Lab assay of single mutants.
Amino acid sequence: TYTWNTKEEAKQAFKELLKEKRVPSNASWEQAMKMIINDPRYSALAKLSEKKQAFNAYKVQTE
């Protein structure tokens, strides 16, 4: 089980997950979700809006 003390740690864990699963920077949210949804870190960020925000930040960083 994973635990995160801060929102920032949770966001980092979520981005690490995207990186580890090699989600391409041109992937849509739907494509990315299919690649990461079974990992416990997918739940790091509770709100869908937070997940999408972190995903978009990840995409910008990896382009």
Rank of each mutant, 00 (worst) to 15 (best):
Q53G: 07
A13E: 04
W4I: 04
K47T: 14
K59H: 04
I37V: 10
K52V: 12
S49T: 08
K11F: 15
F55E: 01
R22T: 05
F14T: 00
M35Q: 06
A13Q: 05
S49D: 12
K7S: 06
V60C: 15
V23D: 01
Y42H: 02
Q61G: 11
K21M: 10
A27H: 06
W4K: 07
S25K: 15
Y2V: 15
E20F: 07
Q61R: 07
Q31E: 10
D39Y: 01
K7E: 13
E63T: 12
K52H: 07
E20T: 05
N5H: 12
E9R: 02
R41Y: 01
Q61D: 13
F55T: 03
P24G: 04
T62A: 13
Y2Q: 15
M35L: 11
M33N: 06
Q12F: 09
K47S: 13
P24N: 04
V60Q: 14
K52I: 15
T3W: 12
D39A: 01
K59W: 04
A10W: 02
Q53W: 07
L18E: 00
K7V: 11
P24H: 04
E8C: 12
Q61Y: 10
T6V: 04
E16V: 05
N5T: 12
A46I: 08
L45P: 02
L48Q: 09
Y42I: 02
V23Q: 00
L17H: 00
V23P: 04
E16W: 05
A27T: 10
E16C: 12
R41K: 04
N38C: 13
L17E: 00
Y42G: 02
S43D: 11
A10Y: 03
W4E: 08
N26C: 13
V23K: 03
L48A: 07
A46K: 12
N38L: 10
I36P: 00
T1P: 15
L17D: 00
W29L: 02
A27K: 04
K52L: 12
E8H: 07
A44R: 04
A13F: 04
M35R: 05
I36S: 01
K21H: 07
A32G: 05
N38D: 12
E16N: 10
A57W: 11
W4Y: 12
L18S: 00
Q12D: 11
E16G: 09
K34R: 14
F14W: 03
N38T: 11
K51Q: 04
F14M: 02
E16L: 08
E8D: 08
T62Q: 13
K59Q: 09
A32R: 01
T62P: 09
K47C: 14
S25V: 13
K15C: 15
E20W: 04
V60N: 14
S49E: 12
T6S: 07
A32M: 03
P40M: 08
V23M: 02
K11V: 15
A10L: 04
S49Q: 08
E16Y: 05
N26Q: 09
K7Y: 11
Q31A: 10
N26R: 07
K59R: 11
K51C: 05
K11M: 15
A32F: 01
R41I: 02
A27V: 09
I36Y: 01
S25T: 13
L17G: 00
S25E: 07
P40A: 08
K15I: 15
R41F: 01
M33V: 11
I37Q: 12
I37T: 08
S25D: 06
K19I: 15
L45G: 00
F14G: 00
V23E: 00
W29S: 00
Q12A: 12
K59D: 03
W4Q: 07
P40T: 06
S43F: 14
E8N: 06
Y58D: 02
L45N: 01
T62S: 12
Q61H: 08
T1D: 15
Q31H: 08
E63R: 10
A32T: 06
A46S: 14
A27C: 11
Y58P: 02
R41E: 01
K51G: 02
I36N: 00
M33Q: 13
Y42K: 01
V60L: 13
A54T: 08
S25N: 10
N38F: 09
N5V: 13
E8A: 12
Q12Y: 07
W29E: 00
I37G: 07
Q61K: 08
A46W: 12
R22P: 02
K34V: 11
E8M: 06
Y2A: 14
I37L: 10
K59S: 06
S49R: 13
A46E: 14
N56W: 14
A44P: 01
A32C: 13
M33E: 08
K51M: 07
L48V: 10
N26G: 09
A54P: 01
E8I: 06
E8W: 09
T3N: 08
S28Q: 06
W4V: 05
N56I: 13
A27L: 08
K15S: 14
A27S: 09
A27N: 04
Y42M: 03
W4P: 09
A10Q: 08
P40E: 07
K51T: 02
S43M: 14
M33K: 14
I37E: 11
N38G: 14
D39R: 00
Q12S: 10
E16K: 06
I37P: 01
W29C: 03
D39C: 03
E16T: 10
E20G: 04
E50G: 03
Q53P: 02
A27F: 11
R41M: 02
L48I: 11
K15Q: 14
D39P: 00
K52E: 08
E50I: 03
E30A: 12
M33T: 06
K15L: 15
T1W: 08
A13I: 06
K7G: 06
A54V: 09
E30F: 13
A54L: 07
R41P: 00
Q61A: 13
E16H: 07
A44D: 02
I37D: 08
A32H: 00
A32Y: 02
L48G: 05
A57P: 01
K21I: 04
P24Q: 05
E50H: 05
K34E: 12
R22D: 11
N56Q: 13
K52T: 05
R41W: 01
M33S: 08
L18I: 04
L45Q: 01
A46F: 07
T1A: 15
Q12V: 09
T3C: 15
P40H: 09
Q61L: 13
K51V: 03
Y42E: 02
E9H: 04
E63K: 10
R22K: 11
R22N: 11
K51N: 02
K51P: 02
S43P: 05
A10K: 07
T1K: 15
W29R: 00
S43E: 13
A10M: 07
Y58F: 07
N5Y: 13
R22I: 06
S28T: 13
V23T: 03
N26P: 02
K11I: 15
F14L: 02
F55H: 03
V60E: 10
Y2L: 15
